[in-house]
């Protein structure tokens, strides 16, 4: 199977260099990749929740470098801007808002961790085996004009992908509205707090305020 996919292209690049004579780009890629992977592993294993977020920054940054090495420079900058810049900051805010403990937290991992480890290792073995089996002779030709420069990206994005791009903006808007609705405090809570004297109304308000909780609860 894997050969059948790779064979037409493999024939075109049949005279690729072996793994034992790496190019400079490859060496850089492997080194950065190891750092990225290490940061990712620390992210999912560390007991300090805030550290996990910070190690995530390292991992995402490493990936940005990998994008650069693959000549996709626009995506690399987007990665840095959005992931490192905004998403990790959001996650940090989330950690703070949920009063995540600072320092080592003994129960950061659930009781499921050994099962998780088994599944993850098995998945890694299977995926690596399949990927290596399929693509061990495939060669990426990084020569020629850059394929991911801002000019090129702008050209294909707004020439070929403009409609999905607009649809995506609607999706982001919907997400924005949804996030606001979800995180907004309910008016009824305020009503209860302003008039705490009537037990009946408190019960009423309580049952209303319970609304969102009920969905996951009953």
């Amino acid at each position: 199977m894997t050969h059948s996919i790779a064979s037409p292209l493999a024939a075109a690049v049949a005279d690729h260099p072996g793994f034992l004579s790496p190019t400079g780009v490859e060496i850089a890629f492997v080194l950065v990749g190891l750092a990225t992977l290490g940061a990712a592993v620390i992210t999912v294993t560390t007991r300090q929740l805030v550290h996990a977020a910070l190690w995530l920054v390292v991992a995402l940054g490493g990936l940005a470098v990998e994008y650069l090495l693959l000549t996709a420079e626009f995506i690399a900058w987007v990665q840095v801007l959005i992931y490192v810049g905004s998403i990790v900051v959001l996650l940090l805010f989330g950690l703070m808002l949920t009063r995540a403990p600072i320092g080592r937290s003994p129960d950061a991992d659930s009781g499921n961790r050994w099962v998780a480890l088994g599944v993850a290792l098995a998945a890694a073995a299977a995926l690596v085996w399949i990927v290596v089996d399929a693509f061990r002779t495939t060669w990426i030709d990084l020569e020629g004009p850059a394929q991911g420069s801002t000019a090129v990206t702008g050209a294909f994005l707004f020439r070929n992908w403009v409609l999905p791009f607009e649809a995506l903006s609607v999706l982001l808007l919907a997400a924005l509205v949804g996030a606001i609705v979800l995180s907004r405090k309910h008016d009824t809570d305020a009503a209860v707090r302003s008039a705490p004297d009537t037990a009946a109304r408190r019960d009423q308000g309580r049952s209303k305020g319970e609304g969102p909780g009920k969905e996951g609860q009953s």
């Binding site: 199977m1 659930s110 499921n112 099962v115 998780a116 599944v119 098995a122 998945a123 299977a126």
Partner: peptide
């Protein structure tokens, strides 16, 4: 009722299927 357990089993099952297919 633990989502992680469900997900673990689901993924383990799909993994087995994928390996078997390959």
């Amino acid at each position: 009722g633990n989502v992680q357990t469900y997900l673990s089993v689901l993924l383990a099952g799909s993994l087995v299927l994928a390996i078997a297919a390959v």
